[in-house]
Amino acid sequence: MEGCFNKLKDIIARFDLQNKPQTIFHCDEIGIQRDAGIQKVLCKRGSRNPNKLVGSVTKAMYTVLMYCNAIGDFLPMFINYKGLHLYSTWCVGEPEKARYNCLQSGWIEAPQCLYWFINCFIPEILKLDGTKCDCRKNIEMFCLPAHTSHLVQPLDVGVYKAVKASWNGILRNYYNETGYKNVDKLVLPTLMKKISEYACLSRANTIGGFEGSGIYPLCKEKMTRKIEIAKIIEGEKIPVFPLPHPLQNQLEP
């Protein structure tokens, strides 16, 4: 992890980004599920087999790419559907300026990522103050270490937990209002638009994610400490403290 920190430090110094948080961006995808999660059911005392009808709770999900900078500017969402063809009816009532694509697997793969970068990311950052200085020539991509998204990726650290909680609330309201109709591609854009009305995408959450991950302000201690904690939890590095001899004798059968 120290090597990752040093590379990031070099990039920030080379492009003179120490005091330019508006030019430091993070993007990450999130899976939007149709299941609203476990809910409590109120029923009369003594009732047998209480239950509540819900919409389809299959494992199906939609993939959404969100991206923002270190001062909390969120740019339009990129929504990727599972399918061979994209239909205009799947893009109605969308979040502001959202972009869409589709792929048979439903995941965002290399072609979709390249399309997003050229047609979404670059045009949008040109509109932001302080990011217009030959950005096409000076963009540096930096991949954070694998399997550490919950520790060092700003959106995972500060935003996505709140997004998922807000989404569950939106989904429950939708089910209650519609009699538990399924969330299909015709409905998803309207529901995703509601996400922006919640505090989950606030500047405070976003700035906290960058700071908590140690990316901005750049902090080696925060970044490396989290990784070490993860190794201990995952069993890669477990400290062993031998018991004092008298106590060890007492524990022997």
Rank of each mutant, 00 (worst) to 15 (best):
Met1Ile: 11
Met1Gly: 13
Cys4Trp: 15
Lys9Gln: 14
Asp10Asn: 06
Ala13Phe: 05
Arg14Glu: 09
Asn19Ala: 04
Lys20Ile: 06
Lys20Ala: 13
Lys20Gln: 12
Pro21Met: 11
Gln22Pro: 01
Ile24Glu: 02
Asp28Gly: 04
Gln33Leu: 05
Arg34Ala: 10
Asp35Asn: 15
Ala36Trp: 02
Gly37Met: 03
Ile38Pro: 07
Val41Pro: 05
Val41Glu: 09
Leu42Gly: 12
Ser47Thr: 14
Arg48Glu: 12
Asn51Phe: 14
Asn51Ala: 15
Lys52Arg: 09
Gly55Ile: 00
Met61Trp: 10
Thr63Pro: 05
Thr63Asp: 02
Leu65Thr: 01
Tyr67Cys: 08
Tyr67Gln: 05
Cys68Ala: 15
Asn69Met: 09
Gly72Ile: 06
Asp73Gly: 08
Phe78Pro: 00
Ile79Lys: 04
Lys82Tyr: 10
Leu84Met: 06
His85Leu: 06
Trp90Arg: 02
Cys91Ile: 00
Glu96Asp: 12
Lys97Val: 00
Ala98Asn: 08
Arg99Thr: 02
Tyr100Cys: 00
Cys102Asp: 02
Leu103Gly: 05
Gly106Phe: 08
Gly106Thr: 07
Pro111Met: 03
Pro111Glu: 02
Gln112Glu: 09
Leu114Ser: 09
Leu114Trp: 01
Tyr115Phe: 10
Ile118Arg: 14
Phe121Trp: 02
Ile122Trp: 07
Pro123Tyr: 06
Pro123Gly: 02
Glu124Cys: 11
Ile125Phe: 05
Ile125Glu: 03
Leu126Met: 06
Leu128Val: 11
Leu128Cys: 12
Asp129Asn: 14
Thr131Trp: 01
Lys132Gln: 14
Cys135Trp: 12
Lys137Met: 09
Lys137Gln: 12
Lys137Asp: 13
Glu140Pro: 06
Asp156Glu: 14
Val157Pro: 01
Val159Asp: 06
Tyr160Ile: 14
Lys161Asn: 15
Val163Thr: 10
Val163Ile: 13
Ala165Arg: 11
Ser166Pro: 11
Gly169Leu: 10
Leu171Arg: 08
Tyr175Ile: 11
Asn176Lys: 11
Asn176Gly: 07
Asn176Ile: 03
Tyr180Glu: 12
Lys181Phe: 01
Asn182Leu: 02
Asp184Ile: 09
Lys185Ala: 08
Leu186Gln: 05
Val187Asn: 04
Val187Gln: 07
Leu188His: 03
Leu188Lys: 08
Pro189Lys: 04
Lys193Met: 05
Ala199Asp: 07
Cys200His: 01
Cys200Asn: 01
Leu201Ala: 00
Thr206Lys: 12
Ile207Phe: 07
Ile207Glu: 10
Gly209Pro: 09
Phe210Asp: 09
Phe210Ser: 08
Phe210Lys: 07
Glu211Trp: 08
Glu211Phe: 09
Gly214Lys: 07
Gly214His: 04
Ile215Cys: 08
Leu218Met: 05
Lys220Arg: 15
Lys220Glu: 12
Lys222Leu: 15
Arg225Tyr: 04
Lys226Gly: 15
Ile229His: 14
Ala230Thr: 05
Lys231Ala: 13
Lys231Pro: 04
Gly235Tyr: 10
Val240Trp: 14
Leu243Tyr: 03
Pro244Arg: 10
His245Ile: 07
Asn249Ala: 15
Gln250Cys: 13
Leu251Gly: 00
Leu251His: 00
Glu252Arg: 10
Glu252Val: 03
Pro253Ser: 10
Pro253Ala: 10
